[in-house]
Write a protein that binds this DNA or RNA. Structure first.
Lengths: 250, 250
DNA sequence: CGACTAATTGAATGTCATCAAGAGCTGTGG
DNA sequence: CCACAGCTCTTGATGACATTCAATTAGTCG
């Protein structure tokens, strides 16, 4: 079971999509052998990103999509007054870059929250071969719809007027995304800082910190720094709906 | 200069895109005559929508995009607890339906806020001809990116922690969208209720009402029911940044 | 070990939600 | 034409909850 460096090279360069764990979530879904190879030719593997490294920056044109292979990305935008707003966190299998699809400069910046790796898909090349492979074209649309809905989920969270409901929805969403990847939906590793979570939810860091503490004392979560374990999904779901579960404080 | 009923008919049925006021914002941008005709064949004109009429409903599959030709649409989604969250307001030239692109059922419901009219673009047919017209394919991507960025702007608004900043951003955004259509950016006709505005911004109706009153007394707006005139763009911009312009209250 | 950052916790203020009442507009029918 | 009902919107008083300011603890890196 020893794998020589050449084999690794080969699989990385040639058969990236074929061997990728996220095939079913990503562009290649439902493509057969021949078409998969054609997609492979378009997809450019990128060097791994170091924690803190920026993938693309707002204001720059870079018409490409990026598939997260491992790690976590954070997208954010800068406001007129210099404040930043975190727009999203992106896990393996998810795709970023839709805000700079063609010509348009990006409105957001994407940064690695931990050491990560991504595939780069130049939009122009993708469009070319998608024009010849209807199933791929469909998959592109499907993924766009998926990411669009994810954006809307952000608005739903921010629309909740109780801070607890926002955090509960956030945690529930993360849990669901882990389930989608066949990972344990109860154990979350938050690769983002409390500050990032707070900003993402439209709160301040102290509030988020207090909420984590409260969830822990309620027995809903076990919190150890950025490692979070969900102990009571039902209670979390209730809190997500704004039910102030006051009886549990007794 | 009399136009017979037949001429109207003809222009409505055959030359919809050619004569549409929103050409430059919409799919046909940068298409020449021949290609424009091919697009015309795909686009289905729809009967006008009456105020309150639903264009599509969440949970249903309906793989089509809709271009707003006149009027205003509201998209919203229903939460687990039965509450609804308003996701967006859509003005002429803008496009809705991205959340139900392929196969997937819609996550949102689209409703006319006033008598409106839309063009329906079946995604499957659009994909077919876009595969043959690279410029159209590009334009599809461009528009998706645009609507994606609009979604993100919603998150930016909701992220502001002062109610005034949210409303100011909202009004500023509406103003900019009117400017983009060569309309007077100072006069807004809010076709949505205060309740809708409040929900969209994650506030309650009373707060929104108070804010409008305050903006009026500050001399920033002239508010007459749903007719709003922006008197002081600079002040509005300041308020959008969370600057509590307390000196103006003196 | 010491300096730095990240996160937690406490106390006080302020903003927004809630509850409640009233004003203004719209449409209907007598 | 006016009266009435129903709705949207406004305005006021109160209180809850999140922010702010401040200090402490925990964890990380040089």
């Amino acid at each position: 079971m020893t794998s020589s460096p050449e084999v690794v090279q080969l699989s990385e360069v040639r058969a990236s999509c074929t061997q990728c764990a996220w095939q079913t979530l990503c562009l290649p879904a439902s493509l057969d052998g021949t078409n998969l190879e054609r997609l492979d030719e378009v997809v450019r593997k990128r060097r791994p990103l170091r924690r803190g490294e920026v993938l693309y920056r707002e204001g720059l044109r870079h018409a490409a999509l990026f598939v997260v292979r491992s790690g976590t990305l954070k997208t954010s935008t800068t406001l007129a007054d210099g404040d930043t707003q975190v727009l999203g966190f992106h896990l393996p299998g998810e795709i970023v870059g839709f805000d700079g699809l063609v010509d348009e400069p990006h409105h957001s910046t994407a940064e690695a929250l931990e050491d990560s790796s991504v595939c780069e898909v130049p939009v122009a090349r993708l469009a070319e071969i998608a024009a010849q492979i209807p199933l791929l074209q469909q998959q592109v649309y499907r993924i766009m719809g998926r990411e669009f809905s994810r954006e809307q989920m952000h608005a739903v969270m921010m629309g909740r007027r109780h801070a607890m409901a926002r955090l509960a929805l956030f945690l529930h969403g993360l849990s669901e995304r882990r389930r989608a990847c066949n990972h344990d939906p109860d154990s979350l590793h938050l690769s983002m800082s409390r500050q990032d979570v707070a900003n993402y939810l439209g709160l301040v860091i102290e509030t988020v910190s207090r909420l984590f503490s409260r969830l822990q004392s309620l027995g809903v979560l076990a919190v150890d720094r950025r490692a979070v374990r969900i102990l009571d999904h039902a209670a979390l779901a209730e809190l997500a709906q704004g039910e102030e579960d006051s009886r549990a404080t007794a």
